[in-house]
């Protein structure tokens, strides 16, 4: 399936919403925030898509107000791969978990919670993954400052 077909397939299942190809990434479909996680459940369980392999999920920080959340998944049956993007509010990023659909998403979400400060309601074990438990701040955000961080002169 091409990304255009994915967008069409999702549009047929959720007629109230718009699904567009991301202008930045030709292999990525933009998903409205309110369709997480039922849209993912559809992609995983639908016979036409069968996305049974979760690659990764990560964030891209766009200060001052946007935080993109990118999911990537793959079907071992049809051998197609797609990225899905959800746009979050940077001040208060919050998105329902998908870790009950793919176990692999568990640590990916913990990592994003740790490094970007995204909150995942419904996640069973939301703790910091990389940094010590009492660390303050979310290091991979663009405006992060820390005494240990020496910025490289250009």
């Amino acid at each position: 399936m091409t990304p255009q077909e994915f967008a069409k397939h999702l549009g047929a299942n959720y007629p109230d919403h718009q699904f567009e190809i991301d202008p930045l990434n030709e292999n990525c479909v933009l998903i409205p925030l309110q369709l997480v996680p039922q849209c993912f459940e559809l992609l995983r369980d639908d016979d036409a898509t069968q996305m049974d392999y979760f690659d990764f999920s990560t964030c891209v920080d766009h200060p001052p107000d946007r935080l993109d959340l990118v999911y990537s998944m793959y079907s071992t049956v049809y051998k197609h791969r797609i990225q899905l993007k959800v746009v979050l509010d940077r001040q208060n990023p919050c998105v329902p978990t998908v870790s009950h659909l793919w176990v692999n998403a568990n640590w990916n979400e913990r990592e994003m919670y740790d490094l970007f400060g995204v909150f995942f309601p419904g996640h069973k074990d939301l703790r910091r993954l990389m940094m010590p438990d009492d660390w303050e701040g979310h290091p991979l955000r663009k405006d992060y400052a820390h005494p240990n961080l020496v910025v490289r002169p250009d």
């Binding site: 991301d22 930045l24 990434n25 292999n27 990525c28 690659d55 990764f56 990560t58 891209v60 990118v70 990537s72 791969r81 990225q83």
Partner: peptide, 19 residues
């Protein structure tokens, strides 16, 4: 733009998402 590529490392499927 943004892209994702992956190759086969001795340990498995290694990928890079670049923006």
């Amino acid at each position: 733009g943004e892209t994702y590529v992956h190759i086969e490392s001795p340990r498995g499927d290694i990928g890079c998402f670049l923006a």
